[in-house]
């Protein structure tokens, strides 16, 4: 298998180099998206299929769409620049040397293995039974280290608020005639399927690869598809329901943590019998929030509406 790994590694490095050195910004973006997909592939090989899913959906997919949309909104030729190659001048040479040295050191460091195995990881696997879910990653995310996840929801929300403050939505192709083209039909066909997959991923997160993030990402992807095919679009107005859904993930998380203190006596500890239902509730609200947030991050607008609505 090392040969495949080596090939993957080589491709990753080549794509990364291309991403940095391509003169055209578009080419760089494309290289980046491809790199993301390859990365996801490599993660599958590294026994992290759920992460691969997330990377493909969010890191490559959503981000790729966003990058492309942003590229389109820039004036033509904007962002095209010639990055000096390592041998073209003193500074690039020095930087190259530095980066190379650093990379070599990092490689060596990544090969250093300590005597003892990872304590936290072992502890996580040990206590999986008490976590309410079978999937270790989900257990870590939603229970062992739920606090991190909660805060992460805050990050997402604030990135969204910041984006909305800028009031610069992605440009839309107004010429694109809605529902007439093949993609639209395709979208109509695939949309329920995608939605289903998304929901399933959320549900399945408790047992197998998948979870709120992946599910949310897929749901967001569905939304993006709808917009791309002209079924929906960003709206300048927002409503409290939407806002409640956006904040929902973090809110449920917080409330669950706070309200259960008297019951469990510890913070973010769930009563023994209720662990699973609570986890599921949290997971779904998280997924919804994530999906909507990512979608709005994509549109850059505070609200959503069906195409043509006022």
């Amino acid at each position: 298998m090392t040969a495949l790994d080596s090939l993957l590694a080589l491709l990753l490095l080549l794509l990364a180099a291309r991403c940095v050195s391509a003169r055209s910004l578009l080419q760089a973006i494309v290289a980046f998206i491809v790199l993301g997909l390859l990365l996801a592939l490599s993660w599958v090989r590294l026994e992290a299929p759920d992460l691969a899913l997330a990377e493909a959906a969010i890191g490559a997919g959503l981000l790729g769409v966003l990058l492309l949309g942003t590229w389109r909104s820039l004036p033509l030729g904007h962002g095209n620049e010639r990055i000096p190659l390592p041998w073209q001048g003193l500074r690039p040479a020095l930087i190259t040397t530095g980066c190379t040295v650093l990379a070599v050191l990092l490689t060596v460091a990544l090969h250093q293995h300590p005597e003892q195995a990872a304590m936290s990881g072992l502890a996580a696997l040990d206590q999986l039974d008490a976590a309410g879910v079978d999937q270790p990653v989900t257990a870590v995310l939603l229970n062992f280290r739920a606090y991190d996840t909660l805060l992460e929801m805050g990050v997402l929300l604030m990135a969204l608020i910041g984006t909305l403050m800028l009031d610069s939505p992605l440009p839309r192709d107004t010429e694109l005639p809605a529902r007439t083209m093949l993609p639209a039909t395709l979208a109509q066909l695939f949309l329920p399927l995608i939605l289903l997959i998304g929901l399933y991923l959320v549900w399945a997160g408790a047992y197998s690869p998948g979870g709120a993030f992946q599910g949310g990402a897929v749901l967001a992807g569905a939304g993006v598809l709808l917009i791309l095919t002209g079924f929906g679009e960003g709206d300048g107005r927002d409503g409290w329901v939407l806002r409640a859904l956006l904040a929902g993930g973090a809110l449920v998380f917080t409330l669950a943590g706070l309200l259960l203190i008297p019951v469990t006596g510890a913070f973010m500890a769930y009563p023994q019998g209720l662990v699973t239902p609570i986890m599921v509730l949290i997971e779904f609200s998280l997924a919804l929030s994530i999906a909507l947030s990512l979608l709005l991050l994509y549109t850059g607008t505070p609200g959503l509406r069906r195409r043509g609505e006022r």
Binding site: L105, A109, Q112, P114, A118, M119
Partner: peptide, 24 residues
Amino acid sequence: LLYAQAGTLDLALLADALPDSTLA
């Protein structure tokens, strides 16, 4: 890198868990 070496993220445990003078 530190997690790879120490296996924990807890600040209170890290100092003891870190092996001496590794490159990582």
